[in-house]
Write a protein that binds this DNA or RNA. Sequence first.
RNA 1: UGGGGUGUCGUCAAGCGGUAAGACACAGGCCUUUGGAGCCUGCAUUCGGAGGUUCGAAUCCUCCCGCCCCAG
Length: 364
Amino acid sequence: MTSGKRVAVGMSGGIDSTVTAYLLKEKGYDIIGLTMKIWDGSMACDPVRSGCYGPGEASDIEDAKKAAAGLGIEHFVVDLCAEYDSVVLDYFSAEYTDGRTPNPCVVCNSRVKFGSLIEKARTSGIPFDLFATGHYARVRRDAALGRYTLLRGTDKSKDQSYFLYRLSQDQLSQVLFPLGEFSKQDVKALALEAGFGEYLEKRESQDFLEFTDYTPLLKETPRAGNIVDTAGKIIGKHRGVAFYTIGQRRALGLAGLKEPYYVIRIDAAGNEIVAGPKEELMSRGLVAENVNWLVPFPEWPDGVIHAKIRSTAPPAQCVADLRDDGSLALCFKEPQESITPGQSVVLYRGELVLGGGIITGSSR
RNA sequence: UGGGGUGUCGUCAAGCGGUAAGACACAGGCCUUUGGAGCCUGCAUUCGGAGGUUCGAAUCCUCCCGCCCCAG
């Protein structure tokens, strides 16, 4: 039943994608491995951790090659430096400059990993029918809706559906997420079974950057300005709007306060940062634009809706309203902390991902 | 040199006779395929110095020392 289908597995050199390839091979698919190259080495930096973007990519590609060799499958490296630069890095810089906090993973997934990577591989003569990754999420063909749907990973602690809500029907139609029904425990056991025990030693989580100072990525030089309180009183200085995010507590340099102050608003136009105590961070409502529906709004199944305001937030109950201009307005049952423009809000009906958008503002 | 003020953790800063808040910074840990995000823990046996009064002082008194302001 799987015979004849050729599956390209996006291999990062980590345990998840390696086990993904192993599982699909065991199932009888014809497998090849693909690894993206996005680091062109032109930028000087000081790598201090594992991440997607940085000089450590070379050894990750080596690990992917080794894994592919170990599985006895063909492996290809696809150079996407130019695409990554114009899609992810430009976006990253522009968002910060405008006082928003970018989420590179969301953009990278929908446009590079599940976009350019697939296209470029095919156009460079690497044919395949399906594309698989090691994401903890599930894809289903829903007969009633007549659509492909995205579901949360079974292991809720590892669920990565949040990062995938921007995928299109076309993308979902050719995607496999074999790890969606496994737990991290299962995957580790499978890695051992497959003879990739040494991959367990690799650091689990990946940051976006291998370095912490992202100044070199900013196309516009940050300008220092004032930090004010909600009454408008100047209480400190900031190094440039691009270095702050909503809810940030550290590195504000505000002394002499009775309680910690957090960034509660960023005014890029006025080059000003508003800081205040924790309760000022709470908001009940938000507006999101640039919405992508996996289930069109009118077809939503009945029931309670939950939304995630950031990747690490638990889904929170809310009521959604689609406005005439296509933007999405949400009202939460309980106030949410640090609703951050630029971050994605993703809507769920139980396990089902309904869609999501980019937050543009919040209201109390 | 008169007059006034002040001296508490690297920094800002509570305390006002009852046995050193808090914030920033720093260090370590946790979380995490976004975030200089968040969370947790640690961080002054000691309050410019020396005496004194008290059962008991950072808190009161005395004398030094250092800053700050006003006068000249």
